[in-house]
Design a protein around this nucleic acid. Structure first.
Lengths: 250, 250
DNA sequence: CGGGTAATTGAGCTGGTTCAATCTGAGTGG
DNA sequence: CCACTCAGATTGAACCAGCTCAATTACCCG
């Protein structure tokens, strides 16, 4: 079965790389750079520290990464999760230092591309530039949605929103079927993402389960049983949300 | 005095427009578009509603705008303030609808530029593209900083950070001298910005004043008396912060 | 002077935190 | 195979920062 299935576009290594909803395959001039720069990183590896010299972007090919900031007292706020097809540009306004940390949440494969190279790739391929714009727009939308809940939402609404957001994002990647998906996250991660204590994340999730909104297995496999009820708690409309936070095909 | 002062670069209307730290003057091909599209908007006018069809960006020439999102229950979260030189791109991932609302906080002057026109302007002027990138990077950095406080900070740290951020941003615009500046904001605005109640904003500001961290006059003129103490409360380093959240000159 | 918006201050309430104990499951080494 | 360990999840109980409700004051504008 392994041998007989013809593999059209991925002979050995990854012959194509996803940026947002678009695949960049063998024909693209961009591909060469992707290929040479692809590298594996183990879970929990920190790729970049807030304040480091940066000057590069990171394209996720596989696995989960997260961007974060932490306070002097060591508390962490996850800013965003990066899934395959996402592009992280940690550069702050000075054009040099990183404005956030980037770490691998799971084992992952990424391309690290120096900013100048990235710019010429964007200039060379309008397709790529367009895809990148969609990815950026999706990230902006997610950040605003999350800021709204962070500033104004209850714990329930924050967590409900987080579950829905992740479900919606995983769907186009083929990692969420029927609102069931795997979250490679501890409750601490979810707490750092939603601005809550791990303890309170636990309580709130249990309540969701008790009320039949979601089901959990293995502490990490989630199934949203009652999407509309959960969306009500989150104060979100899943259809609209999907369009806004998920990179469009073109 | 009004008449005798020669006005070198701004004869009648604005002959130049600032994007980030850069001025785009008469020589720039971009200028024509800026000029024709410049328009005044009164305070409190909503330029764009979350969910509206968008397809344009907004360049601030004068005054304060704010981007925001609101929950179904009517609570508002300000996502960012837009000051002269800032560029708001409200477009979400679908490329069509706006992911946030934009409103004028004070009387303001803005250019509204359709996305296609904007793209060709960027393509025509690498200068402009570069300036826009700095502005975007600055905004990203601000958002992460604020998310950190929103998720993990106390009321004091959120407000202290907001004051420092605004002070730093106003300085290069010539609107902040010696840590003294005018905030055209109600306490409700500050609350919507920091995810707090107006009442609690009031209490916290009073406490800052009592402790000699800041001084206020007219409810809107702020002077930071003890920047390092305030920065300590905010959990921030002003110098580094300035570099990260303020668009670089080039 | 009347009316309306914003600021201020008081008094209680509560959602989420903190601290702490217990429980679970995956390794690990013998 | 079991004992031991260690990280994460779960649950209880007390506490507190920030909220809500409410009253008062200050200020602007017609």
């Amino acid at each position: 079965m392994t041998q007989q299935t013809p593999v059209p576009s991925q002979p050995a290594g990854p012959a194509s790389l996803r940026i947002g909803a678009m695949e960049f395959g063998a024909g693209e001039p961009a591909l060469h750079s992707f290929r040479t720069a692809l590298q594996s990183v183990p879970a929990n590896r920190i790729l970049l520290h807030d304040g480091d010299d940066s000057g590069k972007i990171i394209v996720v090919a596989e696995g989960w990464l997260a961007t974060s900031k932490s306070s002097l007292s060591g508390e962490v706020q996850l800013i965003d999760f990066l899934l395959p097809g996402d592009v992280a540009d940690p550069t702050s306004a000075d054009g040099k230092t990183a404005g956030l940390s980037i770490e691998a949440v799971t084992d992952a494969k990424v391309c690290v591309i120096p900013l100048p190279a990235w710019h010429s790739m964007l200039a060379a391929s309008p397709q790529l530039a367009r895809a990148h714009e969609h990815v950026q727009a999706a990230e902006r939308s997610r950040l605003s949605e999350r800021m709204l809940r962070l500033g104004r939402g209850s714990a329930e609404s924050r967590i409900a929103y987080a579950l829905i957001e992740l479900c919606l994002r995983l769907k186009p990647l083929g990692l969420s079927e029927n609102c069931a998906f795997h979250l490679p996250l501890t409750q601490r991660h979810i707490g750092d993402f939603t601005g809550l204590t791990a303890v309170h994340v636990c309580r709130t999730l249990r309540r969701f389960v008790r009320n039949g909104l979601v089901e959990t297995a293995d502490h990490m496999d989630i199934r949203i049983n009652d999407l509309s009820a959960l969306a009500e708690v989150a104060g979100a409309e899943p259809e609209r949300l999907a369009a806004e936070i998920t990179p469009a095909a073109d």
